[in-house]
Design a protein around this nucleic acid. Structure first.
Lengths: 277, 277
DNA sequence: CGGGCGTTTGAATCAAATCAATTGGAGTGG
DNA sequence: CCACTCCAATTGATTTGATTCAAACGCCCG
């Protein structure tokens, strides 16, 4: 893990394509600490956008609503693909399975996310989607969705954007697993969770993980002991705090500090920060 | 890495949903060595399907063709999203970037794959797609594609299936990185590559990696030295062989043996195989 | 022929997994 | 209410797999 070797060690190769230089993005200065108010506005906008999107879907599709409780299976691997599911409320884990018996949490879904995209290609779902809490999903027959979308282009856009976002997010997960050490991965996981909540207009200073350490570890590619140690370390540095009786309620006083911690793991000497071990 | 702790340690929770039991798929016997002829037929069918799909896309979209050479940039992160790209020939790497400067190969694309899905959501690409060899991509304006697809539903299906496949594949990558030790990951990488070739009607006993060890390692989340060691180990066990002058032409006498090697890494004692170290 | 790059291989080090012991709640039943 | 069990979580000791550091080799190309 934590590979420092360069990835793109290929020849410069003058490109005939009408595109910006390969390293246009890399050339920009690192660390982009945007002002806090802008973030707050952006989050509020994102939250409103999710609400609006759900309203459109509800009004144009009149989806079948289904209330779920912790442990309920929304769809499972091997099952015939018929529906896509839109998360209106609750929290869901997506579990992938391999023929040889390995299984892993490969995604977590919140309000506004969709479930079941993996089923489109092969006519059957290739993973389990399980509710981790009481919630509500909207069921939409895929063929009905296509029919509606043919008449209402906005529906098609929403669908494509949701799939596109999922592809992006999966890639980010892969990157986190491949390029961050265990501590940073846990920190990034919490940061990401808080961010997901923020973009849905929820408070981020207090999050409730509805997962065991084993599940978190499975998601992040490490053992439960390593997760526990990482959390303890973050707590010792005051980056997180444990609230309530159990150790699943986590307080995040400053999300930006978590981000900084991740940064520091990536480039320890770059930042002038004191590495208080 | 190589987490053995159970992921789904949640309460059984009787589900009101009309779905198969959670562990219906897991209960089935492991190891599914399908007869070889069936595989060959399936591969041929897959190959024909890709060819047919490309023919449909060519005929209905009349896409702009673009010849590329090794190192050419198909699209790059930050660039305005306008086109999707369909790979007609060649091999491409997809490189993801983070604001803090990390970069990673997050995907490899072959004939029939699409490029650029990540750009749909935010109106700009979030990664670089770079040709690793001479090839040809077909450029399709996204808005034009939507317009055509509105009239030709088959186009829409092809698009959605391609996106769905990508989501699946990304999840499988994540699983390989999270649940397999380094040696197995390299073996799985080669097996997957051979499989990709086979499904495109190409020979699999002889593959040419157009990547450095550093790039392979970056893709698989390990260092170049570890990749090299893993390859040497596989070669020592006759699972692969080095052809030609350089060490990038790899001969795979028996793809099934590679699969068995991966299996054996996952469940060493389960299989009655002799663990010839 | 010599320099540069990619690759291999060995030895030392380190981060994370494994093994093991203990703590702490939540739930159950006397 | 308390004793009991069960499971999640923490923490420590040890092992191990992968990284890091280092050296050498082979190939391509000027």
């Amino acid at each position: 893990m934590f590979n420092v070797h360069a990835a793109t060690a290929t020849a410069p190769a003058v490109s005939p394509l009408p595109s910006v230089p390969a390293n246009a993005l890399r050339a920009r200065p690192l660390a982009t600490p945007a002002p806090k108010r802008v973030d707050a506005e952006a989050y509020q906008r994102a939250s409103q956008q999710i609400t609006d999107t759900l309203a459109v879907l509800r009004d144009t599709l009149a989806p079948q609503r289904r209330v779920v409780h912790a442990g309920d299976i929304v769809h499972s691997a091997g099952e015939q693909f018929t529906h896509l599911f839109i998360v209106n409320a609750g929290l869901y884990k997506v579990i992938n399975l391999t023929p040889d018996g390995r299984e892993q949490v490969v995604g977590l879904k919140f309000r506004g996310d969709w479930l079941g995209f993996d089923g489109i290609a092969g006519q059957q779902y290739t993973c389990d989607a399980i509710a981790m809490d009481t919630g509500e999903v909207w069921m939409v027959r895929y063929d009905a969705l296509l029919a509606s979308a043919a008449r209402q282009p906005v529906l098609m856009s929403l669908l494509h954007e949701a799939m596109s976002r999922e592809i992006r997010r999966d890639r980010d997960s892969l990157m986190a697993v491949c390029t961050l050490p265990a501590d940073a991965r846990v920190a990034d996981f919490l940061r990401d969770w808080a961010d997901s909540l923020a973009r849905r207009g929820l408070r981020t200073d207090q999050i409730t993980l509805r997962m065991t350490r084993a599940e978190i570890g499975n998601y992040l590619g490490m053992t439960l002991e390593t997760v526990s140690r990482a959390l303890s370390k973050l707590a010792k540095q005051q980056l997180i705090g444990f609230d309530g009786k159990g150790r699943r309620d986590i307080r995040i006083p400053d999300v930006a500090a978590l981000t900084a911690f991740v940064q520091d793991c990536v480039a320890p000497e770059a930042n002038g920060g004191v590495t208080l071990q």
